[in-house]
Nucleic acid binder design. Structure first.
Lengths: 217, 217
DNA sequence: GCCAACGATACTGTATACAGTTTTGTGGGA
DNA sequence: TCCCACAAAACTGTATACAGTATCGTTGGC
């Protein structure tokens, strides 16, 4: 017999707060530098500081918030150097993703990618913040399709940081360009062109940086 | 005036427990699968469960312990597939490290590397567990010299996991071979041979895997 | 006016209490 | 013997209390 659904199971508290804060940060509802006092966050979500601290620890480990000792956590505001570092690593990691995917991607994976890009296209005009999030998740989906959990995790990490960086610049057409470039990446993978896919990804990432008017990595 | 040294400053508790547990795990004092009940760990180190939970959270985020909901944390025991994943990512990340270092390494960096390898040589015969740790830290040091904090962090991450994996196999001569190979890597970097350094690193990592009698990545 | 000392306020770090969940051990029936 | 039910023990999840630390405004001296 199926267990009765509960409104929140034990252990889900931190996860929920983490997800909500993360969404707020990437969606610019919390701008870089915003302070996140534990008590305030706890009150806002109706939980205790204990739960908030667990969520903050995770956000800090992903670089989305800074959390110095004995001081309030605050939303990270990456410097130019840090931004360059993030995108430099994306070149490394996502280059490896393309190499691996060109060999092993199957029609089902291609279909998932195309479906995702379709959602990007839908959100692109109406929900700019969500468009940024979806554009990032496309890259995470690519990484997941490699079948390497670790690679997927690191890509997810740098993509989160990228979203925070890009949210700060607030270019609204970023996503439109991303859609056509994402489709191009899929096409290259589909025909097994690993070299082309790697190069296209490198160019795509440079475009993303360029549109955000950051100096190239 | 300098502040009076304290035995432990607030906020240092979790960090200390984290470091001690990590050392015990990598040093095989805690073997894979060992249970880590919060209360037991807390009693052992003379702190409260609060502190232990923070340390466990960090270890779990680095993949050294598994921490399912409502269950005791336990030391991870990586499967063959997970081990292959770890070393596959090391190829990607450390290949990038060599590329970057061949351009930018300075005599001071070379000196630090050589000094480190000297310590590896000293520990190699007498303290096998410490030799494994030092061999890992050589790779972390390489990554740090690139000047990319993020790259350094990810390398540190996969090296930790590797240490856990290698500790399980318990090959005692691993470290001796590592010393000569590490010196070879330094020599290649010193003469600016990026391609050679990248290839040598790839071979080195394959050797490490081979000595541990794991299937090649 | 300017700056240092100081006190109030806000906030974090850690311990602990209690409730809820999982695990373990034990006895009874087939 | 095997296996299920069930109760006891072990353990985690969360809230809360209290002590310690940073932050900020104010006051007093110059």
């Amino acid at each position: 017999m199926a267990k009765q659904e509960r409104r929140s199971r034990p252990g889900d508290g931190p996860e929920r707060i983490y997800a909500e804060l993360r969404r707020s940060i990437i969606g610019q509802e919390l701008s870089p530098g915003s302070r996140l006092p534990e008590a305030a966050v706890a009150a806002r979500f109706g939980v205790s500081r204990t739960v908030v601290r667990a969520a903050l620890a995770r956000l800090a480990s992903e670089g989305l918030v800074l959390w110095p000792n004995n001081r309030s956590a605050k939303v990270a505001s990456p410097s130019l150097a840090e931004s360059a570092d993030v995108f430099g690593l994306r070149q490394v990691l996502e280059g490896a993703v393309m190499d691996r995917l060109a060999d092993r991607i199957d029609p089902q994976g291609v279909a998932r990618l195309r479906a995702h890009v379709a959602r990007e296209g839908t959100a692109e005009a109406t929900h700019p913040a969500e468009a940024i999030r979806l554009a990032g998740e496309f890259h995470v989906l690519l990484a997941e399709l490699t079948g390497s959990p670790l690679l997927a995790r690191y890509v997810s990490d740098v993509v989160s940081r990228s979203s925070l960086i890009l949210a700060g610049t607030g270019r609204s057409h970023s996503s439109q360009c991303a859609v056509t470039e994402h489709l191009e990446l899929i096409a290259l993978l589909e025909r097994g062109d690993g070299t082309g896919a790697r190069q296209a990804m490198a160019a795509h990432l440079l475009h993303v940086v360029g549109r955000a008017s950051l100096p190239p990595a």
